[in-house]
């Protein structure tokens, strides 16, 4: 497999995952904002913080309100993390890897592109937003299903899976981070306990993890247990532990994988150590920060090992 094609396949998977995650995140926030008492003071702007896009946002908008945040995340062509931009990148990467991906996935990404272009306004207005977001998630999952069902388990598949899980791990840290931030914001509020329930419930939902959490943990939604579940669970496909082990599995099916595998193993060993979740504040924030750096290191190791031919 060509190094360039490997790189583009990897990125195609990352962008696809990013689109689905961004949309999922908006849809969760949408519901969260309806439930939280307005006095709590959690703003839409948190979505910008999660994506580390404060600077880009502030350059364009003065008001940090719902409409601007949604516009920025969905339709802003100059914002590299917007759905529209990610879609463009995903499509360019798929366009240039058409020789290794199933032909139908090219058709589907075009469908997604058409759907998004034609219905973008729906996503921005609150009344129709649910249908739009849901439509995007649906097509993203169709594409995943197609790849799962038709792609041979060769190197191209390996890089797809790799991209998907690296992106997923990264996104999971960001979603947890959002929970921690929200939690810190409501600490002193009179309705804090109730709000915490709502916040962590939404973190679970944003990962589509609420049902499996309840079955696995058999307890009501409590912040420290949610955090533990999302970091440590070995069976839930979006938990950090699971994503890292999926990354390792995909690496092991690729040639000359040793140097990258050892980077992942190091993260697994050093970072995924028993942690005290009771205090959800600073220690967890630090952990998430370190984890994001580790994921970045795994990415550069992948890139150095396969994408840049010397």
């Amino acid at each position: 497999m060509l190094s360039r094609v490997a790189e583009r396949t990897y990125w195609a998977a990352r962008y696809l995952e990013r689109i689905e995650n961004t949309v999922r995140l908006i849809s969760v926030y949408d519901k969260l904002m309806y439930d939280l008492p307005t006095s709590v003071g959690i703003g839409w702007y948190n979505l910008i913080t999660i994506n580390s896009a404060e600077e880009a946002f502030d350059e364009r908008y003065k008001v940090q309100d719902e409409r601007n945040v949604i516009k920025f995340l969905l339709s802003e062509e100059n914002n590299p993390v917007s759905v529209v931009s990610n879609l463009r990148f995903a499509r360019e990467n798929l366009r240039t890897t058409r020789d290794v991906i199933p032909a139908q996935s090219w058709v589907m990404i075009n469908e997604l592109n058409l759907f998004v272009t034609e219905n973008l306004q729906q996503g921005i207005n609150r009344s129709q937003r649910f249908n739009f977001l849901n439509g995007v998630i649906k097509i993203c999952q169709q594409i995943q299903g197609l790849l799962m069902g038709t792609m041979p388990r060769d190197a191209a598949w390996g890089f797809m899976k790799l991209g998907r899980n690296v992106e997923r791990a990264d996104m999971t840290t960001r979603l947890l981070d959002a929970g921690v931030r929200a939690q810190l914001q409501v600490m002193d509020d009179a309705e804090a306990i109730n709000s915490q329930q709502i916040i962590w419930g939404q973190v679970l939902r944003s990962l589509d993890a609420d049902q499996s959490y309840r079955r696995a943990v058999r307890s009501s939604v409590k912040g420290h247990q949610v955090a533990r579940y999302i970091i440590e669970d070995t069976a839930f496909p979006r938990s950090i532990t699971y994503c890292l082990s999926a990354v390792k599995d995909s690496l092991e099916m690729l040639p000359h994988c040793k140097p990258v595998v050892s980077v992942v193993k190091k993260t697994q060993k050093d970072r995924l150590t028993p942690m005290d979740y009771i205090d959800l504040g600073i220690p967890l924030k630090d952990f998430l920060n370190d984890m994001q750096l580790d994921i970045a290191a795994i990415h550069s190791s992948i890139s150095k090992n396969w994408f840049t031919y010397q």
């Binding site: 240039t96 020789d99 190197a155 396969w306």
Partner: peptide, 23 residues
């Protein structure tokens, strides 16, 4: 077939054409 761009290929001293792959 492979879809290649110029930068994916290299001609070595043995006058053969090679493509840069992950292996």
């Amino acid at each position: 077939c492979e879809l290649v761009e110029g930068a994916d290929l290299v001609v070595k001293d043995d006058d053969c054409v090679y493509m840069k792959t992950i292996s």
